[in-house]
Amino acid sequence: MLKKTQNNFALEINNISHYFQNKWILRNISLNIKTGEFVTIVGPSGSGKSTLLNLILGAFPPSKGTISEFGENKTGASPHCGIVYQKYPLYPHLTVKENIIFGLTQKEQLIDKKNQDKKALEYLSKVNLKEAQNKYPFELSGGMQQRVAIIQTIIANPSIILFDEPFSALDFSAQANLQKLLMDLYTTKKKTIVFVTHNVEEAIFLGSRIIVLGEKGNQQGATIILDKKIKEPYPRKEKFKTSAHLNEILEKIYNLKF
């Protein structure tokens, strides 16, 4: 059972630094993420975005500092925190439906076979992939794989969902479709989301808060150089992408000195 923290933080990142292959990747990062926040993390290539996400996930521990998940010190990956990867988003030996059912059945929360199928198909219908239920991942396009991966993660009902550049290898229209899907899911499910991307526009469009990582001065290792709330109500419309508000934030980020 998850604790409700006094300050309502889903994640508390306390002054973490990470050292890897003889250099500092991240330096002195402190960040508190509230329950239900949609945080997007951007930064140039090699700025440690994915490293930070993996530390939050618990894939490996930080060299310094601590990360707390709902008030408890994080010691490894846990079912409270789901992940959608860009690479290897699905299990290649399972069909679409089996991939989803695997996410559904592992927490012993449910259910007989008939209901598993029913629930998996219900979610697949939401992303228009009911017809692909018996296909293997290698038979799907990149966009379809990502849609299944999102469903697989969401159906397991984690409190926090992490996204590691999930749409970066997709074409423009697939990206737009998945952004819409993600927006709908966030609006209806209100999960805490941490979304890493190198696409700044996407980060502003999706996030309720944007974090920019980069190296400050001569210091080795990236740190937070911008932490900004984006005051645009959800669900966001496509026209927000061309709005003055978005462009203003965009300009601010592009003017930052990395």
Partner: peptide
Amino acid sequence: VKAITLGSK
């Protein structure tokens, strides 16, 4: 890692 996050033992 994904299996752990999905709750798999």
